[in-house]
Nucleic acid binder design. Structure first.
Lengths: 165, 165
DNA sequence: TGACAGTTGTTATAATATAACATAACATCC
DNA sequence: GGATGTTATGTTATATTATAACAACTGTCA
């Protein structure tokens, strides 16, 4: 099975590769990945668990960055416009995008046990959405597709309460 | 083409039928559709435009109902549990459910021009979601599926700015 | 240099949602 | 009918998420 956010992996590699990717993309597009923007992106990538705006704000504050809400919301807006992260509407949290060079709106699996998110890019889902929209003569601009449940790792791993008799 | 929230129709019929439906369902289930709960449901159904919690609160206040946030959030929670309405996470608004007897999570078309919402129940979408989840060994509990764009009526109807030279 | 665009700082506030505890209404059992 | 438990509502306060508005700074390039 392919590697996902849910399965164990060298996550520091995810972070550094995401940042490198972002740097080159921004350079290429002539937009500025300023220190606060880059730091927000790193913080978002620190785990595969989506992170809230005010959590980011607290982390920035600890590091001596300016820490008023507009700072982080502006950074999130920029990163989102550049396709470097996605917002998860069902939980008001943000997660890094693995594939920022091609603008897209992802589909997400959100695990309620480990709180990690895995982005999907399913052509089946896209097609199903398109067929439904077409049936109604509806023109799609964007979408929010979030599947909430339990990931394989958390299903397989007995919970603490099940371990203790 | 079938009738939808987007197309013109006798909406007072939608409202009264939704309320009748809700009354019999609640009776059947032995739960109480109290005055404030019923009024919230009516307000939600007043248009096919999803309505926000604080709009509901303001409407209740005008009518002499208690109007502190918990009042409306409790009613929304009850109605949601009973499958009588759905929350749209992408816009923090609530919309009546046409088919409350069978518990389900809907798929929605949201028009950004007329702000109306149409619930879909597409087996294609459900299947596509299930296939994607299965591929990852992921067990679905619920989902948020919202397609944002422009409805047929708003595409066909030239906008005001296009009408004036 | 100065003019402009873009970015950041700062203060205030809007919008959405819940915690916590008190009171009231209803149900039921004796 | 009164005691009791459960459900629903009232009330106050506060948490959480997000944006408006305007000032100041920074980089760029004519």
């Amino acid at each position: 099975m392919q590697s996902t956010a849910f399965s164990p992996h060298d996550h520091s590699h995810c972070i550094s590769s995401a940042i490198n990717h972002a740097q080159s993309l921004c350079a290429q597009r002539g937009v500025r990945l300023t220190p606060v923007r880059q730091r927000v992106l790193e913080l978002v990538w620190r785990s595969h668990q989506p992170i809230g705006a005010y959590e980011l704000l607290a982390a920035l504050a600890k590091e001596g960055f300016n820490s008023a809400p507009p700072t982080v919301y502006r950074a999130l807006e920029f990163l989102s416009e550049q396709g470097l992260l996605h917002k998860l509407d069902s939980i008001n949290a943000y997660v890094g995008c693995c594939n920022p060079e091609t603008p897209h709106q992802g589909h997400f699996l959100l695990c309620q046990v480990c709180n990690k998110a895995q982005e999907l890019e399913s052509q089946y889902i896209n097609l199903a959405l398109k067929v439904s929209a077409d049936q109604h003569g509806f023109e799609i601009q964007r979408h929010t597709i979030e599947i909430i449940g339990t990931c394989k790792e958390c299903i397989d791993k007995p919970s603490l309460s099940e371990l203790t008799p």
